[in-house]
């Protein structure tokens, strides 16, 4: 049986992710135990909340050094994805540097946070198998990742930004697949099948 671990470092709303996998018939374990994380087949790196606080919690638990060494597929969701980037303007925070891009705040002429359903396009990974171009995903965020070579999906909100990233075994999505209806479920299913 597949061992799926959701990294539990105090970030908010991991229950929803756990439930989403439960709907797919997979029991996701919440853990901050390095051994359990290292032994997982697949890892979810969640995150809701403020970047510098979240990074502080990662550092305190030593997970900041563990995460970059992971070899199995890792999926960062929302703030989880942003923390895998080089840096974020939120709280001037240095990220884990997996994705070679920076996270910026949306300009002030836009309503911030972007809240609601927007489309993902220019899909470039098997994470999106069975997902059509311009599929709707649920997003809630004030900061966005700039495009880079690792962009695997793009979204427009005032500007065009990277709504998903991939580097080797690391995947990151800005949207919330666990809250994005059937299309979101398909993406989680794809991740399990990577």
């Amino acid at each position: 049986m597949m061992k799926l671990v959701i990294i539990n470092y105090g970030a908010g709303n991991i229950k929803s992710i756990q439930f989403a996998f439960k709907r797919l018939g997979v029991n996701a374990i919440l853990s901050n135990d390095p051994e359990e994380i290292l032994n997982a087949d697949k890892i979810i790196f969640p995150g809701v909340g403020e970047a510098s606080t979240a990074m502080k919690m990662l550092v305190e638990s030593g997970l900041d050094t563990l995460i970059p060494t992971l070899k199995q597929p890792v999926l960062g969701i929302c703030l989880g994805m942003q923390l895998l980037c080089k840096s974020t303007e939120e709280g001037n925070t240095k990220g884990l540097g997996i994705f070679q891009t920076d996270v910026k705040r949306f300009p002030n002429d836009l309503k911030v946070p972007q809240m609601g359903w927007n489309v993902i396009k220019e899909l470039k990974s098997n994470l999106f198998s069975g997902i059509k171009e311009n599929e709707y995903m649920y997003l809630v965020h004030s900061y966005y990742a700039e495009h880079c070579n690792e962009t695997i999906s793009a979204t427009d909100y005032g500007l065009n930004y990277a709504s998903a990233l991939k580097h080797k075994n690391f995947y990151g999505v800005q949207f919330h697949p666990e809250k994005s209806s059937l299309a979101g479920e398909q993406i989680l299913k794809n991740f399990l099948e990577l």
């Binding site: 929803s16 439930f19 439960k22 709907r23 649920y138 994005s180």
Partner: peptide
Amino acid sequence: VAEQVNIP
């Protein structure tokens, strides 16, 4: 609801 519903 959280357990069974896939929208926010």
